[in-house]
């Protein structure tokens, strides 16, 4: 019973996605059955559209920028949380999480007012800042639970042996927490590629992939939107699968290396 229910649940989650994927290959412009055969014309139209290529480039710039910023800030946070204790740790962890406890709408309008008051014109830079605010909490959350078990005495041993703090981090801590950090960084890329609740407010005249899809949807229903949606879906899912592989493969390799040195 409960197993059947779970299968139905998964069907409900994936059926709509499967349907838009199917019609992105439709030979005709209609988005309904009967299905009239396969064609890749909507994808060709999409990749020949300069609007799409611009949006894709912008999305890539923003995703890279916010992932780098998120990784830098998030690694500092993770290292800090490992060393903190008690109430201060709880308060700092809460502050890290707070931006996503509020709906994207609030972040978006708060940033609009802030950027306007400090006189920063809206551009891809403001989009990167907005996205970082959104991806940073996810980064810290996904890294935190894994780093709870990190043994700080490794680092202390390196320091006692005369390594500088930076050298101890580079030679001892980073190789251990690296895969987790890399996985979370790739996750940030995926989150940034899809983000638009904040982007709508903090962008100037630049469009990103989701913004382009949103404006296409306002105009008409067309299989080109299906193609754009499927493209975005494939990119995001590929990124997540890569993140998962990076995290597990690196850990396996480390375990193997450790086993070899033990022998």
């Amino acid at each position: 019973m409960i197993r059947l229910f779970t299968y139905l649940y998964m069907f409900f989650l994936y059926a709509p996605i499967a349907i838009i994927a199917l019609f992105s290959f439709h030979a005709s412009a209609s988005l309904s059955f009967p299905f009239e055969g396969f064609s890749t014309q909507w994808y060709e139209a999409l990749f020949h559209s300069s609007d799409f290529m611009t949006a894709l480039t912008n999305s890539a710039i923003v995703a890279a920028g916010s992932a780098i910023l998120t990784t830098l800030l998030g690694t500092f946070s993770a290292l800090a949380l490992m060393r903190m204790k008690g109430r201060i740790k709880a308060v700092f962890a809460f502050m890290n999480f707070a931006p996503i406890a509020l709906p994207g709408l609030f972040l978006g309008i708060a940033l609009v007012i802030f950027f306007s008051l400090i006189g920063l014109p809206r551009s891809l830079l403001t989009v990167i800042i907005g996205h970082t605010l959104f991806t940073f909490p996810f980064f810290v959350e996904s890294v935190r639970s894994r780093l709870e078990y990190f043994d700080l005495s490794f680092e202390e041993a390196a320091r006692d042996l005369g390594a500088s703090p930076l050298k101890a981090f580079w030679l001892v801590t980073l190789p251990i927490i690296g895969p987790t950090i890399a996985g979370a960084a790739i996750l940030a890329v995926a989150l940034s590629m899809d983000e638009f609740l904040i982007t709508v407010f903090v962008t100037g005249s630049d469009t990103t992939l989701p913004l382009m899809i949103l404006s296409m949807m306002r105009r008409a229903v067309s299989p080109t939107i299906n193609a754009a949606s499927v493209f975005m879906l494939v990119v995001t899912i590929a990124i997540i699968v890569i993140a998962g592989l990076v995290m597990t493969l690196r850990r396996r390799r480390l375990e193997l290396e450790r086993a070899e040195t033990a022998e």
Partner: peptide
């Protein structure tokens, strides 16, 4: 499926 964009699912 959560990471399949919100917007894509509205469109679906």
């Amino acid at each position: 499926s959560w990471f399949s964009s919100y917007l894509v699912r509205v469109y679906a």
